[in-house]
Design a protein around this nucleic acid. Structure first.
Lengths: 217, 217, 217, 217
DNA sequence: TATGAATGAGTCTTCATTCAT
DNA sequence: GATGAATGAAGACTCATTCAT
């Protein structure tokens, strides 16, 4: 009467699909109107499920929010960490390499979901301080650490003049992101990607003027 | 008990006092729990007035929020602009001058009300985009412009090597503020002022390494 | 423009009327469908007020229930205590006196509101044990004590042979009320008052057979 | 693993066990939180079955409640009727015989399940009046009838002076149970068995004072 | 003008009940 | 027959806003 495990996997797929639909819909709604203003009615409608289904899967509005935030942040953080794989390791092509990395980081930063999570985290920092810490520890903190490592390696090889790599890493991203928040009204507006590109290139330029071993190359 | 305009001025004083009390109470409540979660009951209680009095004075919750934001932002921006009056204009004492300015800017940035406004503006950027623009135009944009002017003057005098003063101004504050938001969890936590000081000094250092006419000092 | 205190009293009257209407409506609804099944919508409709008005006056469903119970019980207890004022104090007319008291007690017991409170208290004894205690202490306990006093006085005068007046008081009302709960399905059904009367008279008869100083009078 | 009717009987046993588990769990839950507050989730969890299984076996919440009440009441009534088997039939040992019966009745009355059913029946008398009638007819009414018969026999033999045996039967249990409901807060609290014993003995004493042929023996 | 009281709309959450497997 | 998942309906409670005084 049935085809066996295919059927079961179909059912499981249905379950997971529904959960996924809820979480994604919730992210969209939260991003659109904020945590407090988002009603479970909106989210249920957006996800195409009944309201109690959300409770069956996620338990409560607060829990739903936490899941949405951590899962989306994890995805975004993963993409950001991948960028470091193309980080330059030699003096040869240092500037274009850094520009490439900076461009990719800007792309990650301005990714729609990434902006949404960041804005929501900021907005609800008072209500969910622990969530803020958790996301930061598992994301930005690790990223800064990794970036500092790459910079230190370049410094050791004499390609950069850096005393405090962690601080330099922080300054690198400060320069690269610079006015992104302002340009996009904290992510609530689309942002011209050429503007962002220019900012990134300028940030790399200043970074190399400050830390390049021979005034940049 | 008294007559004539004295009475009227007394009553006017009372009215203004009441309005002021409402706005200040509203800022505290909004900062504590956010816009959506703040109820007019809380605000009325905190201000020591009856709920309808808020409507008499400010009209609606949204309007109250707008007034609170713009008035508080204006006060904060005023203080920030004053900092520029001590901006150095000569090569002599350039580094300590910039460090002094950076320290004062950090103090302004980390001022409690200032953080509260910034956080609320961020949090409600989607719901009140016009408010965001208005505050930015009357504050940060003017500040950047003024800062760029000071930097251009220093560059013209040969004390700094700067091509694009506006960009340099943005980078200056990016370097100075750097990780302030992270350190204070976007303003929801007190922040060690010595840490902030160190960040500011390091930011100035990097800025001068990049833009100093002779490698700094 | 106004007639002075009349106007104010009118407004106060309106307030109190509204509160009274809520409490009375709540008693009716609770009695009709029980605590858990009673919705504030029903109560608000029955009282002719808006739902939040109930919250303004009474705070919560639980609190409303407590007020309804204690206020109604106090009224019922008051009436019951008044019955004792006609309690016989002499051997002359002892039996008719006791029968009169018994009849009045049955009337109090079978009073609609009284039955409703008793049934609700029983029904919700698990959820509101403290309420149960409070009502019992301020009502039945005091009544038994007072009744025991009257019986003791009769015993001292030699009109009754009673060793333990409190026990005798309990047995008196046990005999008088006897099968009232069963007859009225615990108060959920009207009860034939002649049946009740007979039970009361028979109860007095048995009581006097047991405690009368000369086999009854 | 096995075949034929063994398998079927095993499965039947399982089904009946499951049904029994559901009914017993339901009684516990209903007793603990009342009818309206008891959710099928609680009951399913307490019974260790899935929610739809309850529907397969009992059909609906209301039906489940009816079954639980009637089955438990039948069990309790059976035990109560058994007590009458030891009812004294001679003048010799009348008082101790009645005291023995009274004690056993109190034990039945204060049995945990018995109290739970009584309380639930009282609590839901308005919602389930027919259930109340059904249980009363099959239980208390028959018991009173049987008790009246025993008393009549004793009266006929000259051991008691009773005109209306049914009334005397009702008064007997009224005196014996007397303040049990109050002592145990209508069964929602454990009750000191020595207190109950004393009440029973005192009830028998009064009963014999009233109806004993020679002042009791 | 300032306020106590009232309310209509909307929020989160729970529950009895039913499908699909 | 037993179950995990889904849902429509309903409930307690809150809030921004408006009258009447």
């Amino acid at each position: 009467m049935s085809v066996g495990d295919t059927e079961k996997s179909t059912s499981d797929r249905g379950r997971l699909d529904k959960r996924r639909a809820i979480v994604e819909a919730a992210l969209r709604v939260f991003a659109r109107v904020g945590y407090a203003q988002a009603s479970l009615d909106m989210i249920a409608a957006e996800a195409g499920v009944a309201k109690p289904t959300i409770y069956n899967h996620l338990g409560s509005k607060e829990n739903l929010f936490r899941h949405v935030m951590t899962e989306t942040a994890a995805r975004a953080n993963g993409k950001t960490m991948e960028v470091l794989e193309s980080f330059p390791v030699e003096a040869d092509g240092l500037r274009p390499g850094l520009e490439d990395v900076a461009g990719k980081l800007v792309a990650c930063y301005t990714d729609e979901q990434s902006q949404a999570v960041r804005r929501l985290l900021y907005a609800e920092a008072v209500r969910f301080p622990d969530l803020f810490d958790q996301v930061r520890a598992s994301g930005p903190d690790q990223f800064i650490e990794a970036l500092a490592g790459r910079l230190a390696r370049l410094a050791n090889a004499g390609h950069l003049r850096i005393e405090d790599p962690v601080r330099a890493a922080n300054q690198f991203i400060a320069l690269v992101y610079e006015e992104l928040p302002t340009l996009s009204t904290f992510g609530s507006r689309p942002l011209d990607s050429r503007d962002a590109e220019k900012v990134a290139v300028a940030g790399v330029d200043t970074f190399l003027r400050a830390f390049g071993s021979s005034g940049g190359s």
